[in-house]
């Protein structure tokens, strides 16, 4: 038995079947760009493209990964094709990593599309690209595992979308991307610190504009912690709910 053959084939099939399809591109790219443009146009003061970049990147990852993963896994569960994967002689951890790897890769690619656009509009010199890459990968992993957590918590496809928005929209407002954390009411701030995107966005801000407010190592640690918890809890739920 060569588990890597199963892993790579699950990943390739998902990439082909789901991640390169138009609905995912619209959710992952168009929506965050439109949302950011809205802030750009409505802002009373002139906003630098470079200042918007961390936000667009973070949201592209968040929307690109969570929307598709939550929906596809729920869909496969409904059509029972997920059962076939559960019956394969590979560990549950490896199976779920294979199912999420496609979303993580897609999330990382998604994050750099706005960077390409920004390169035509402004100078990107002085950016800490290593930190950008590390944070993008970690945001992608955390967001994907959030999608997995949503997928294993619902039974219907429409529930997956609704439940996704329950997490995504508060993150959008509370993660400090568009409204600085210091401007948020003090009673809301603890909620912000309980959201993984707060830490991911802050690293991106530090890497792009050096204006993050949380210590970078602490943010990385928080993202790793969120990822570990979401993955472990999802596996626990799959074991409890899907393997009857």
């Amino acid at each position: 038995m060569k588990p890597w053959i199963a892993f790579s084939n699950i990943l390739m099939k998902d990439m082909r079947s789901y991640y390169l399809k138009p609905p995912n591109i619209s959710w992952g790219l168009i929506f965050p760009v439109a949302w950011t443009l809205m802030f750009f146009l409505r802002s009373p003061v002139a906003v630098e493209v470079r200042d918007l970049l961390p936000g667009v990147m973070a949201l592209s990852i968040l929307f690109g990964t969570t929307s598709m993963l939550a929906v596809t896994i729920t869909f496969e569960r409904k059509s029972r094709s997920f059962e076939r994967l559960l019956l394969a002689p590979i560990s549950l951890n490896l199976l779920m990593l294979a199912k999420t790897a496609g979303a993580i890769i897609f999330g990382v690619i998604n994050a750099f599309v706005p960077v390409i656009f920004a390169a035509f509009l402004t100078s990107l010199s002085g950016i800490n690209w290593l930190m950008v890459l590390a944070s993008v990968v970690l945001i992608a992993i955390t967001s994907t595992f959030l999608g997995l957590f949503i997928a294993v918590s619902v039974t219907q496809v429409f529930e997956a979308q609704t439940f996704s928005n329950f997490f995504r929209f508060p993150m959008l407002f509370l993660c400090g991307l568009f409204i600085p954390l210091s401007d948020l009411p003090s009673f809301i701030r603890p909620v912000s610190y309980a959201l993984p995107l707060t830490y991911g966005a802050d690293i991106l801000k530090t890497a792009v504009s050096q204006n993050g407010v949380i210590a970078v190592p602490l943010s990385f640690f928080a993202l790793v912690l969120f990822s570990g918890f979401l993955f472990a809890y999802s596996i626990y739920n799959v074991n409890r709910k899907w393997i009857l």
Binding site: M1, K2, P3, I5, A6, S8, N9, I10, K13, R84, L85, A88, P89, I90
Partner: peptide, 8 residues
Amino acid sequence: FCGALYGM
């Protein structure tokens, strides 16, 4: 795909 799941 099913064959791949069994590591073939």
